[in-house]
Amino acid sequence: MVVFAVPAEVAVILLDIEGTTTPITYVKDTLFPYIRDNVKEYLCAHWEEEECQQDISLLRKQAEEDSNLEGVVPIPLETGNGEDEVEQVIQAVVDNVHWQMSLDRKTTALKQLQGHMWRAAYATGLMKGEFFQDVVPAIRKWREAGMKVYIYSSGSVEAQKLLFGYSTEEANAAEEADMHVAVVVRPGNAGLTDDEKSYYSLITSFSELFLPSST
């Protein structure tokens, strides 16, 4: 087993999600397809709720800011002209969300709606989080050792709370912020260059993080 010794001065463990705590395939093949396939049904079911209307308002504002981009789908305002108009607005939101996702955009408006949709799916049992087997035991061990554990991600706060990607670029950023870095090599992750393999401490499981003795 390869062991990465955690320096004694470390009091916080900072984890990424995609490809670190959670398989990349779960995010790519489950989370995002769920949004694409269910956004219209979600909007119809939650249309009258204040939270949903706030999400739509934020998406409408983003569409206005994106008005100069090719392919953008504007979201019209409602004028109270009945069900046909509501259907038109919902379809515009659906088309806008699909357009943003096709470009892999990470706007606040899109992330907010996605977070609310995932929350509803988790609450009703339609979705369950997926983690590598070593994640939960490792977090428990770190907490018992008095360490704080945090998650960082480009996803919404809502999505991070619900779920809990790895990339070499993120490792670089962490190191530039004076953090101690260990890269977790998981199935399905992008391959590392020879230079990256020789430069970074590589582990394949959180069990390989050796904590200093508290005595």
Rank of each mutant, 00 (worst) to 15 (best):
E78Q: 04
E78W: 05
T79Q: 10
G82T: 11
E83Q: 06
E83N: 07
D84V: 12
D84M: 03
E85I: 01
V86M: 12
E87H: 10
V89Y: 00
V89R: 02
V89G: 04
I90P: 15
I90A: 13
A92H: 12
V94F: 04
V94A: 09
D95E: 14
D95N: 13
N96T: 12
H98T: 01
H98D: 15
W99S: 01
W99V: 02
Q100K: 13
D104I: 02
D104G: 02
D104M: 14
K106Q: 08
T107L: 02
T107Q: 05
T107R: 00
T108Y: 11
A109E: 13
L110H: 10
K111F: 03
L113M: 14
L113W: 09
Q114F: 02
G115I: 10
G115T: 06
H116D: 14
H116M: 10
H116I: 14
H116R: 13
W118D: 00
R119F: 06
R119I: 01
A120P: 11
A120S: 09
A120W: 09
A121V: 08
A121P: 14
Y122Q: 12
T124M: 09
G125L: 10
M127E: 08
K128A: 11
E130T: 05
F131M: 14
F132Q: 03
D134C: 01
D134Q: 08
V136Q: 15
P137G: 01
P137H: 04
A138N: 00
A138R: 00
W142M: 13
R143A: 01
E144N: 14
E144V: 01
M147N: 15
M147A: 08
M147F: 07
K148Q: 07
K148L: 04
V149K: 15
V149H: 13
V149W: 14
Y150E: 06
I151P: 11
I151Y: 15
Y152K: 04
Y152S: 11
Y152R: 02
Y152I: 05
S153Q: 04
S154Y: 02
S154D: 14
G155N: 13
G155W: 03
S156H: 15
S156Y: 07
S156N: 11
S156P: 05
V157F: 05
E158T: 04
Q160H: 12
L162S: 14
F164L: 14
G165M: 10
G165A: 14
G165E: 15
Y166A: 11
S167C: 05
T168C: 09
T168R: 03
E169W: 04
E170W: 02
A171W: 00
N172I: 11
N172S: 08
N172H: 12
N172F: 04
A173N: 10
A173F: 02
E175M: 01
E176N: 08
A177K: 05
M179Y: 06
H180R: 04
V181Y: 00
V183M: 08
V185C: 11
V185A: 04
V185M: 12
P187H: 06
P187L: 07
G188I: 12
N189W: 00
N189D: 03
A190D: 08
G191C: 01
G191I: 01
L192A: 07
T193C: 02
T193D: 01
D194N: 03
D194F: 03
D195Q: 11
D195S: 07
K197G: 03
S198G: 05
S198N: 10
Y199W: 03
Y200A: 03
S201V: 00
S201N: 07
L202A: 06
L202Q: 09
I203G: 00
T204E: 12
S205K: 08
S205C: 12
S207G: 04
S207Q: 10
